[in-house]
Design a protein around this nucleic acid. Structure first.
Lengths: 401, 401
DNA sequence: AGATCACATGAATCACGAT
DNA sequence: TATCGTGATTCATGTGATC
């Protein structure tokens, strides 16, 4: 039975942490390629906790996860009053419309509660993803703004094959919305693999509208009778893009509405760690079985290419010391409009002011700022060379050392 | 002076309705093709009222308009420093006073007030459109749900040519969101021209994601010195699709944030009546002059504007997500001279450098540029397949999207 | 006349580490 | 915590000048 294979989140909430619920045959999941340091050992990594997500999150240590992906319940009329109404109120009205309208406050309370619990668990630079449709996403967006989250983007998942509108009364509802938010407006150091996404998009910035098919075919979990196990299983491609964009290998991703574990499956494949929380033992069991069959991609393919900003800093003085540029030499911009003289201390002199390559570059152009490395050029045999190429040579020699 | 040509909304609010503010030389605008019956004669049709939109709406008779289109302030939270492009030029951002709110609660209060005023003016089967971005749309959506509006769709305006993200810190913010809502859940008789939209969309249901260019070129209103008159003028194509979908000829469209009158211009062209409310006399004057130059299309030509097809740009990442190529797989050129490994983020790795299919293709050949789509091949059962064929398969699934 | 290039610009919550 | 110096960063489209 699924329930025998589960980790009880309530037990975890009482600090009686036990991972023995995971079947012994289950392999270790998602060995981290680059484990984050200082992670509390009490985190139930690569585990599916069964129980209420708010209690389970409140039992986790604060500031302990790098990313949250949440696919909360959308529909306010599911009749699952226990989940949607933390105040335990139950609406017996048969009138759907009244039910929906009356339940906004309780849905909002539930939303605020789980968003607050998630925020506590997030590291200062962690980010949160939430997916929803027009039924709930406005409630979610307002709540997370009210709680101090800082929205970075809203992302449109454009469905390749949406369900048509059968009655012809509306536009085909062909998309869902994801909100990507940092923990607060001050969280400037969040992870975003800008260059990787750009490189995977023909060297153009990745936009906020993503075209991805629904989860169908072999990817869709089915039971013995061929029925879908979960009504709203998300495509792995969607999760892959979010995790590639906003996490590093080894990062911990928390999913408080784990369902059948798409987040865990993708996290494991991409060398991330996961913590799943799921109320339904059947879903949790299906998720475990699914994730056990996933293999992590090779570490080499997961390595994050260093960004330009992360490369070692090279003083312009080093370029002179290395002999690429001589003191007393004249530098010009690419078109030869501006000139400055190289001083032996690594500063430039335009005849009036002495300063850094950046400062003098900005000055001669009358601009507030300038990247001197790409602005200034040397001339050798009538050919102009950007001084940034000398920096690259020095960096290459540093890499070998 | 603009202020001499305006209709004072405050005066209208005091029931001292006067349309003499409209210059005598101004032609009658937007003669209705099929006037709706029972319209109160006191409606200031095809007029721009100047003043506070809430007061002006409260002065209109209840249940009198067929549609509302609203482009409220977005409550953008601008950094103090402003934003510089990579070439150090400054972005002409929205920093107008009308977009400044002290806090979310004050924005929410404003939003609730104008939404409530609009709802009173709406006929029982009228619908409301609101456009916004992630800065404000969640507040708006929550507020209108709270007020009893019934959301029919959220629509994504995918911008053909959005402003890039200059700092590489986020996804390109390439869309805005429209909410389409009826006055209440009981409003079952709202107008929706399903068949017309389908007919104008190659016999496919019109989806909730619309691909439309920004308002630029001749359509963009400019002052004598070539500067844009309004910072956020919307494209007429966007308004045209909303009005064609949700109104009939002769219907009255109310725009409480009229700006430079895109709603009025499109309404007149399509044979709808309009009521514009605008706080700024300068904008109102520009709107009047603009609308005066519009001619109503003949009845026969009131067809759905043909949908602009999205340039079906496909990221190489999508090819991996779709399973055509696996992360970790090796790609070669047609003759098998060069090799590179596919990364899960859609980049290639030739063992030394990580980059896009184009960049690595160029690199291995020592060429300045390369079309990676036609250069790289997979090998299956000894047969080589160009990765461009996978792109074509994905494009086939994008038909209609 | 047509092609090419240089430049401008659009609702934007847009840096970061060392000292 | 604040200040300061380095130096990273853009896509589609329209307009007007130049070849």
């Amino acid at each position: 039975m699924a329930s025998q294979r589960t980790v009880a989140a309530d037990a975890f909430a009482r600090k009686q942490v036990s991972r023995t619920g995971r079947p012994a045959s289950s392999p270790r999941m998602g060995l981290p390629a680059q484990p984050s340091p200082l992670r509390p050992s009490s985190l139930p990594l690569d585990t599916v906790l069964v129980g209420d997500c708010i209690a389970a999150m409140n039992a986790l240590p604060a500031s302990s996860v790098d990313c949250v992906f949440a696919d909360p319940p959308y529909n306010l009329q599911l009749g699952d009053a226990g989940l949607l109404r933390p105040d335990q109120s139950r609406v017996d009205a048969v009138d759907d419309d009244w039910d929906k309208f009356a339940s906004f406050p309780s849905y909002d309370a539930f939303t605020r509660e789980w968003l607050a619990a998630a925020r506590r668990v997030m590291k200062p630079n962690a980010t949160l993803w939430v997916i929803g449709s027009y039924h709930n996403i406005f409630r979610v967006g307002s709540a997370l703004q009210d709680l101090g989250y800082w929205i970075l983007n809203d992302i449109v998942w454009r469905k390749a094959n949406p369900m048509p509108n059968f009655r012809g009364k509306r536009f085909t509802n062909a998309h869902e919305t994801l909100i990507w938010a940092s923990r607060s407006a001050e969280s400037k150091g969040y992870t975003f693999h800008y260059d990787a996404l750009k490189g995977g998009n023909e060297d153009l910035q990745m936009r906020s509208d993503w075209f991805i098919p629904l989860c169908t075919g072999d990817e869709r979990l089915k039971d013995d009778e061929g029925r879908k196990v979960h009504p709203t299983q998300k495509p792995e491609a969607l999760l892959a893009r979010t995790l590639l964009a906003a996490t590093n290998p080894g990062d911990v991703v928390l999913d408080p509405f784990f369902g059948t574990g798409t987040t865990g499956a993708v996290a494991k494949r991409l060398g991330r760690r996961f913590i799943g929380i799921e109320r339904d033992p059947g879903y949790a069991a299906a998720a475990r079985e699914r994730i056990a069959g996933i293999e992590t991609l090779s570490q080499a393919s997961l390595l994050v290419a260093p960004t330009k900003r992360a490369e070692p800093r090279v003083p312009f003085l080093s370029v002179i010391e290395a002999g690429h540029v001589r003191a007393g030499e004249t530098l010009t911009d690419e078109r030869g409009r501006f000139r400055a003289t190289v001083r032996p201390d690594g500063q430039l002199d335009n005849g009036l002011v002495i300063g850094s390559i950046h400062k003098i570059g900005a000055l001669v152009q009358g601009l507030p700022a300038c990247n001197g490395w790409t602005f200034w050029h040397t001339e050798r045999n009538g050919r102009k060379t950007c001084i940034d190429s000398f920096r690259n040579e020095i960096r290459a020699t540093m890499a070998g050392a």
